[in-house]
């Protein structure tokens, strides 16, 4: 016993803040949220056990839940590939043939740093408004604008564009990955007369697969968690016509506007499962398309 303490004391002392945090801020809340998801709970009276009631209502009767899923999946399906394509394209432009890229890199990264702020969400709302600059620019080339945000058909895509604008951090990660590809591979391909297009598919993408994988998982999780921009641009409601009812916005409103804490917890668990399934899928399929350099098959 004494020896056990001596061997482990220092480690656990240093780990203790994290351990306390883990128990009270992660593990405990996860279990509590699972329990609450089986109850009705309004924060005034104690939780009342309701079995699978919340989940049943969610899947069978709650139209807004399905709408929120649809909005969020559409957003993920558009914003993640567009952002990654943009990031990879620009990273490849910066990677070769230029002597100084520092300033470009900084400029392209800046929106990633600012994009999560309220200020940018407000700016976006005004830029895409009826009298906004977007319509101003369209008018110059003779296209009649519209209220991009007040129109439920287009509102979601303004947020997709906002997400695309923030391609900076995956770009930096791609750039670091591109630097790791040996130059002689391209030189050999050049001598063989391989076209640039084929070089991209045969050398760049396969060599970059681990980085693509990493970015894809990270950005997909991020996209599912999008909150601030949708909340601000839709005035906190998901309007117009629930077209901006992101899953997190719906969850927030159920919890902190209507105080349906049990139902919101069930929503949170469904989100957790969706994200876990996506991550697991990515890892499960990765062995077919991601090969690490020092790995032999």
């Amino acid at each position: 016993m004494f020896r056990f303490l001596r061997r482990n004391a220092a480690g656990y002392v240093f780990l203790s803040p994290w351990l306390v945090g883990f128990v009270f801020l992660a593990l405990g809340p996860i279990l509590a949220s699972l329990y609450m998801s089986f109850t009705r709970y309004d924060m005034v009276s104690p939780p009342v056990w309701d079995g699978l009631g919340n989940y049943q209502y969610m899947f069978e009767h709650d139209r807004r839940f399905w709408k929120a899923l649809q909005v969020t999946f559409t957003f993920v399906a558009f914003s993640v590939p567009l952002r990654l394509a943009m990031a990879l394209g620009v990273a490849m432009l910066l990677d070769k043939g230029l002597r100084t890229i520092g300033l470009y890199r900084a400029i392209f990264y800046l929106p990633s740093l600012l994009g999560a702020s309220i200020a940018i969400a407000l700016l976006w709302r005004e830029m895409f408004g009826v009298d906004g600059v977007v319509n101003g620019a369209l008018a110059m080339i003779g296209i009649e604008g519209r209220g991009w945000i007040t129109d439920p058909d287009t509102s979601l895509y303004t947020i997709v564009i906002l997400a695309m604008w923030q391609f900076g951090s995956p770009m930096l990660i791609f750039l670091a990955g591109l630097r790791g590809i040996p130059r002689d591979l391209y030189e050999a391909a050049e001598i063989d007369g391989t076209s640039k297009w084929r070089q991209f598919w045969r050398i760049t993408l396969p060599m970059l697969a681990p980085v693509v994988f990493f970015n894809l998982v990270l950005q997909t999780i991020e996209a599912f968690k999008t909150f601030t921009s949708a909340f601000i641009i839709s005035n906190g409601t998901g309007a117009p016509a629930d077209s901006l009812l992101f899953y997190t916005v719906y969850l927030f409103n159920e919890a902190f506007k209507f105080f349906r804490m049990g139902y919101a917890s069930a929503l949170a668990w469904v989100l957790l499962i969706i994200i876990a399934v996506f991550t697991a899928l990515a890892f499960a399929t990765s062995k077919y398309w991601v090969h690490y350099e020092n790995e032999r098959d």
Binding site: W18, P29, F227, F256
Partner: peptide, 22 residues
């Protein structure tokens, strides 16, 4: 465990944390 909490969406722990702090 620590790596797994990194993946955890904040929204899942949000409500119990609120109840705790309340």
């Amino acid at each position: 465990l620590m790596m797994m909490t990194m993946m955890l969406p904040y929204h899942v722990v949000l409500i119990p944390q609120y109840v705790l702090f309340l």
